[in-house]
Amino acid sequence: MEEIRQVTPMVNSLTDEKRVAFYKKTYTHLAMAVLLFVIVEWIFFQIEPLVNFAFSMAQGWSWMLMLGGFMLATSYAEKMAHKSHDLKQQYLGLLLYVVAEAFIFIPMIGYAMIVAGNGGGDILSQAAILTLALFTGLSGVVLLTKKDFSFLKSALTIGFFIALGLIVAGLIFGFNLGLWFSAGMVILASGSILYQTSNMVHKYSEDQYVGASLGLFASLMLLFWYILSILSND
């Protein structure tokens, strides 16, 4: 006899109590992902050959190879976390995403530490506070209004392709993208936070809180990257 797969209800169809429980699980896993990122980043910085390799890949066309590898790894991680209803697969996807983020952040955080050591202040803490404040505000807008921001998907997709094109053009023609590009990416990351929080409210099923946390983590780290970039080059 063929086994009938049980359909998990969508979050927006749950009772208020169960919906709040889903949100709590999602943000708890998001907090765990951020903590794991900090731990993995610290471990990476204790491995000098790995740090040197990451810095060497952040130069010229090597950066495109590194960025391409990051995109492949995170795309696979997203598929594991979002497409599967198997919690083990979702956790593996989240773990892979966190490790990939920690690796690609090595040059950025290393540069921020150098700037801070030259009298630039505690840039990492400032960037973290600004990122958390903006993330909290944007998430609060969605959770309070329950507005569906899925209409942002097309604009975000186009925006990310334009950003990638500008990065490639910068490498080909040797120009610095500068402050305005970083500011534009902060806006794009903010839109992504609205979109991912909206997905958490409207698009996920009850058992996909790990996948929902990955989407939020990806947007959070994108925002942190470009806020840190602005502060490091101020």
Rank of each mutant, 00 (worst) to 15 (best):
E41V: 07
A33M: 08
V11F: 00
V20N: 06
V40H: 13
R19H: 07
A21F: 05
F37A: 07
F22H: 02
T26P: 07
K18S: 11
E17T: 15
F44G: 00
I39W: 03
R19A: 14
L14D: 04
I43Q: 00
E17W: 15
L30R: 15
A33C: 06
K24R: 11
V40T: 04
F37H: 07
V20D: 08
V38N: 03
M10W: 04
T26F: 05
Y27G: 08
V11Y: 00
L36A: 10
K24E: 05
A31H: 06
L14V: 03
M32H: 04
I39N: 04
F45C: 02
S13H: 06
V34Q: 05
M10V: 04
S13M: 09
I39E: 00
I39L: 03
F45S: 00
M32W: 09
V38G: 06
V34T: 10
T26R: 04
V20I: 14
W42A: 05
V34H: 11
L35C: 06
M32I: 04
M10I: 01
F22R: 05
V20R: 15
A21H: 11
W42C: 04
M32L: 15
L35W: 05
A21E: 10
M10P: 03
T26V: 14
K24P: 09
T28R: 12
F37T: 02
Y23P: 01
L14E: 03
A21D: 03
V38M: 09
A21W: 02
R19W: 06
A31W: 09
V40Y: 02
H29M: 03
I43V: 15
F37L: 11
T28L: 13
F22Y: 06
V40G: 03
Y23M: 08
F37G: 10
D16H: 04
F44Q: 00
V20F: 11
L14G: 08
K25H: 02
A31E: 10
K18W: 10
L35Q: 02
Y23I: 12
R19C: 08
K25L: 02
T28M: 13
E17G: 12
L30V: 07
F22D: 01
V34G: 11
K18H: 14
D16A: 14
V40K: 05
E41W: 15
L30Q: 12
A31I: 10
L36K: 04
W42V: 05
K18R: 13
L36C: 06
E17F: 13
V40N: 03
L35R: 13
D16E: 15
S13V: 04
A33Y: 03
K18F: 07
N12V: 12
E17A: 13
I39H: 03
S13W: 09
L36H: 04
Y23G: 02
V20K: 11
V38T: 05
M10D: 03
V34F: 13
R19S: 13
L30K: 12
T28D: 09
V40L: 12
Y27T: 14
M10S: 11
H29A: 06
T26I: 07
T15Y: 15
N12T: 11
A31K: 11
L30M: 14
L36D: 01
K18G: 13
L14Q: 08
K18L: 15
H29L: 07
K25Y: 08
T28C: 08
E17R: 15
Y27P: 10
